[in-house]
Design a protein around this nucleic acid. Structure first.
Lengths: 119, 119
DNA sequence: TGTCATGCCTCGAACCTTGAGGTACAAGGC
DNA sequence: GCCTTGTACCTCAAGGTTCGAGGCATGACA
């Protein structure tokens, strides 16, 4: 009961960032994205469909993505692609991510010499 | 109303990681940690007391930290320090963080060569 | 016919940070 | 003496996120 962690560490917003990045390379559909993320991260990251689909829908509502239904071999796929706004959003998300990584790295690496009120 | 984000991107679990790291260098009290994080991150990160205190209490309940009340100039401080388990936890958290950073970096950096020409 | 992989979707649960609010004491200015 | 500021602790509701399981449908293959 104690070691119950359903909320993953450090992964907040990461699915959105990766979706944006992958769709910037080429249009994809939801199921494909789930696998693409796993592959692109070298099997280190995996987000379920229950995580990806809601994000896709939200991003489309925000006009960051646009979707189009395509029938392939009698089966329907909802293919998403970036909009102009999506590309802006990707740039913002990417720099947010880098800023956070830089800040945390600064804390973790150089910390022993930073004395606020006791040097 | 649209750009309303109360949940920060990429910061999930970061406060705990930084608390652990800073307390591994020296014992500190809550209020001090709030400032230490801001300073150590070069003013790039800031977590309020409403974020820090609950984490401190939880970590103490998990025996990752231990606390001791200390009276300084008639004022009470609750000083936290690492336990043995805390040091193990720090190692785990740190490697989790690095794994996530590595995985996301792999996604963001590697991938453009799958596209012919479009930039 | 039955099972599997593909493909889309929804829902509740669990978790986290935010931001505001509340208490208390000491020191300094006026 | 009064009042504001800074220190120091704490709590709570709100909002947002991922997880995990489940449901539905089709085509392929045995």
């Amino acid at each position: 009961m104690n070691t119950k962690k359903s909320n993953p560490p450090y992964l907040n917003g990461v699915p959105e960032l990766l979706i944006l990045h992958l769709l910037d390379e080429r249009p994809m559909y939801g199921y494909e994205l789930v696998q693409a993320i796993r592959v692109a991260s070298g099997e280190r990251l995996e987000f379920g469909e229950g995580c990806i689909y809601p994000i896709l829908h939200r991003l489309e509502a925000q006009e960051v993505l646009s979707s189009r239904r395509e029938a392939v071999a009698g089966r329907e796929r909802v293919v998403y692609r970036m909009t102009r706004r999506g590309r802006q959003q990707l740039a913002v998300s990417r720099s947010d991510w880098q800023r956070v990584v830089a800040a945390v790295s600064a804390c973790l690496q150089g910390g022993e010499h930073a004395r606020p009120s006791m040097a």
